[in-house]
Amino acid sequence: MAAMRLETAPAQTGPMVPVMYEVLSRRRDLDDTFTLELAPVDSAIETPTMGQFNMLWAFGIGEAPISLAAIEDGRLFHTIRAVGSVTNALCAMSVGDHVGVRGPYGTGWDLQGAAGKDILVMAGGLGLAPVQPIITELFANREEYGRAALLMGARSPDALLYRDELEAWRARLDIEVEVTVDSAAPDWRGDVGVVTTLLPRVPFDPPTTRAFVCGPEVMMRFGARDLSELGVPLEEIFVSLERNMHCAVGHCGHCQLGAEFVCKDGPVLPWTVAEPLLRIRER
């Protein structure tokens, strides 16, 4: 049988087939963290909503679930920390390299449903990336929401993600931006302490607040607990879970927590659903 020429092979489609994207730019955010700007080579994936994630393929190595940090005119922005073989390969990519993209997957942040409410965003570490679209949307439609605040925690001043953006957001007068780090040298003039210590600083009306919390799970647990103690309704606290997602379509079961598949039932969940799931110990 004659071998099929690659260029005439029928295009494969399906939930497990990546769409080809090209790296348009690569920005170093931190020592080990980069943001890739990706544009479709030919066809594009469906437009993601804020809070969803894509599976990014480093061809020949593997794929990893990465949250959407921004989308502009069909271009995807993904912020990636180099922690394993796939993310190391993604972070090492150059402009013009090709990345496979599957997605978008999972649930997103429901900001539109919070019209008229106070908005409180709490982020820790790289958790700022998945909530960045919330900030962008807030600025685009600022008049639709009540008071707005971003509380950000990081390991140290050097580990603050999107520092330029944080400074730009802070310069605006229509959103409160508070930043704290776990430890710092004396030349740091900002706050030191856990992110929840920032809560008393920002004005919001707990019963009419929607909170979006994203970061390490322990931070989210303490954040949700403190928000609840202040009077924010549990169903108005949303968190983004991160588990061992492989297939992203609810087939493989790697990310299953209780009856939920984090990849398709999450990653964004109300605290009423997420709280019992976070009590399940990973093995």
């Binding site: 920390r81 958790g127 390991r155 856990v194 390490p216």
Partner: peptide, 20 residues
């Protein structure tokens, strides 16, 4: 208590192990 809890959280180096 609040400071003890905060210190424990800081000691866990939460953000160091948090990937995107």
């Amino acid at each position: 208590r609040d400071r003890l809890q905060a210190t424990r959280l800081q000691l866990t180096d939460l953000y160091g192990s948090y990937a995107s």
